[in-house]
Computed example of a mutant assay.
Amino acid sequence: MSRVLIISDSHGLTAEIEGIKNRHQADVMIHCGDSELDLDATELNGFLKVAGNCDIDSRYPNEQTPVIGGLTFYVTHGHLDNVKSNLSTLSYRAAEKDAQIICYGHTHIAGAEQIDGQLFINPGSIRLPRNRVEKTYAIMEWESSDNIIVAFHTVSGKKVEELTYRASL
């Protein structure tokens, strides 16, 4: 079983990131930007990281495309792809990278959805959520690409059941 922990839009929080990191065992941890921390901040040790529009450390990459558990991920913040309007640009960019899983932030709106063979995951924000009161992050688990589960959790670790999403790619 592969497991990826995904957070975004922590906007300066540190203890919360440490708490989330210490609570879960994950093969890979992803931060989708707007940490507002330096690239080498100890709280972000072990995270695959990308730049958000509020990150001032120029060492952050704008995107990353790791292969994890046999799936190709496209990780970006989303501000350069206009995600507040629609997911088209993000989808095209991920397709150029042959990615099936797209992790992004920027909107602060937690959710997962599958569109035309691509799975979009926005973990929400652990500081300033939109459309929900819960401050959230996500965990994606899978044994095979036809049985993917994306679960959302509050900063304190409580599962937000109604956001759980199942996908088959």
Rank of each mutant, 00 (worst) to 15 (best):
V133E: 11
R132H: 12
I139H: 02
R130D: 07
A138E: 09
T154Y: 03
S156F: 10
R132N: 09
H153C: 11
A151W: 06
E134P: 11
Y137W: 09
Y137M: 11
V155L: 10
I149C: 06
L128I: 07
I126D: 03
S125W: 01
I139Y: 00
D146Q: 08
L128K: 08
I121F: 02
F152Y: 09
E143H: 11
P129S: 11
D146V: 06
I139G: 00
S145E: 15
S125G: 05
G124C: 04
E134G: 11
K135S: 07
P123H: 01
Y137K: 05
V155K: 05
V150G: 13
N147Q: 13
A138Q: 08
I148S: 04
S156D: 13
I148N: 05
W142M: 06
R127W: 03
M140R: 03
H153K: 15
E134M: 15
S144Y: 08
V155W: 02
I149S: 07
N122S: 12
H153Y: 15
I148V: 15
S156W: 10
N122Q: 10
E141A: 00
T154M: 05
N122K: 05
A138C: 11
S125E: 03
S125R: 02
S125H: 04
G157Q: 09
E141F: 00
L128M: 08
G157L: 10
F152Q: 09
K135H: 08
I148A: 06
G124Q: 05
V150I: 15
E141R: 01
V150C: 13
I126V: 15
H153G: 07
T136C: 10
I149D: 00
M140S: 04
I149E: 04
S144T: 14
V150Y: 13
W142G: 01
N147P: 04
V155H: 03
S145W: 05
A151N: 15
S125Y: 02
K158G: 09
T154D: 06
I121S: 02
F152H: 10
R130C: 10
V150F: 13
I121H: 01
G124P: 07
I126E: 03
F152T: 08
P123V: 00
K135F: 02
N147E: 13
N122D: 12
V133Q: 15
V133K: 12
M140F: 01
K135Q: 14
E141D: 14
N122R: 07
V133F: 07
S144M: 07
A138R: 08
E141N: 04
E143S: 14
P123Y: 00
F152M: 11
A151L: 12
V133I: 08
E141W: 00
S145V: 15
I126A: 04
D146K: 06
I121W: 02
N147V: 07
P123F: 00
K158A: 14
E143A: 12
R132S: 12
N131S: 12
V155D: 02
K158E: 14
N122W: 04
G124S: 06
M140Y: 02
K158W: 03
I148R: 06
E141S: 07
E134C: 09
I121T: 04
V133P: 05
A138P: 08
I121R: 01
S144Q: 11
T154C: 10
N122F: 04
S156R: 13
A151R: 15
F152D: 12
G124A: 06
G157T: 07
E141M: 01
P129V: 09
G124N: 04
G124I: 00
D146S: 07
I126N: 01
S145K: 15
A138M: 11
